[in-house]
Structures are given as structure tokens and as C-alpha cells.
Nucleic acid binder design. Structure first.
Length: 103
DNA sequence: AGCGTGACAATTA
DNA sequence: ATAATTGCCACGC
């Protein structure tokens, strides 16, 4: 049914907050179909501090924040492969129950 | 009510 | 592997 009581931005932010330390999620995973949206949410929305935006990387593991982000990820123990995040290991293994739909 | 925008994604050379 | 191109959606003005 899709009852977006809140804008997608809220659910996106919620997904980012759900990223455990040492792991990362891709924009496409936060909002399949509109991966450009989460990006704009974090970019437009001022860094509140309660949102680990640095745990959000591109679909290929490349970063969007810049070196600033890379440092934070490395500090959290995220696996890096050269200049990109090793999504094979750092990507969220499973979801704690996020976009539960269908039914 | 319409247009431009964007911290993207997937595809094709 | 890199580079360029197109498509996508939802939001702000």
C-alpha cells in the first residue's frame, strides 16, 4: 500500500541512521528508483550530526563526500579497495527490517 | 502548474 | 580499466 506518512527524505534519513558502524549503504539502496534523491537530501539537508551520511557511498563503492568521507569510513573500520569502498565486505549484509513492503 | 536541479545508476564505446 | 551519455525520480522555487 504505500502509505508514505512521511516524505521519502525521512525514510532515507532513517535508513542512513540504520547503517551499523563499519558498514555502508548505497544511494540506490536507500531509495531504489530515485538514487539521486538521497544524495540531495544529505546535500541539501544541513549535517545535523545524527545522520552518518559518511556511511553512504555510491553504487560502485566510490565516495561522494570526498576525502573527508574516506577518512571517517576508514576510521570506522570500513574495508577499502584502493580509493573505493569494498562493497563486497562493507556493504550492509542484511537489513534489520527497513523497506518492508508487499503483502 | 511547470521547470530545473541533484553527494546517482546503468549502459555503451 | 576509464570516459562519456542517457534515464530516472522526487523536491524546491
Amino acid at each position: 500500500m504505500s502509505a508514505p506518512s512521511e516524505s521519502r527524505a525521512e525514510r532515507v534519513l532513517a535508513g542512513v541512521r540504520a547503517i551499523p558502524e563499519g558498514h555502508v549503504r548505497t544511494y540506490g539502496d536507500l531509495d531504489p528508483g530515485a538514487p539521486r534523491f538521497p544524495g540531495r537530501v544529505l546535500a541539501t539537508h544541513p549535517d545535523a550530526g545524527d545522520v552518518p551520511w559518511h556511511r553512504v557511498v555510491r553504487a560502485d563503492g566510490s565516495l561522494a563526500g570526498g576525502e573527508r568521507q574516506r577518512e571517517r569510513l576508514v576510521a570506522e573500520g570500513v574495508a577499502f579497495r584502493g580509493m573505493r569502498v569494498d562493497l563486497r565486505l562493507a556493504r550492509l549484509p542484511l537489513d534489520p527490517g527497513e523497506h518492508l513492503e508487499a503483502d
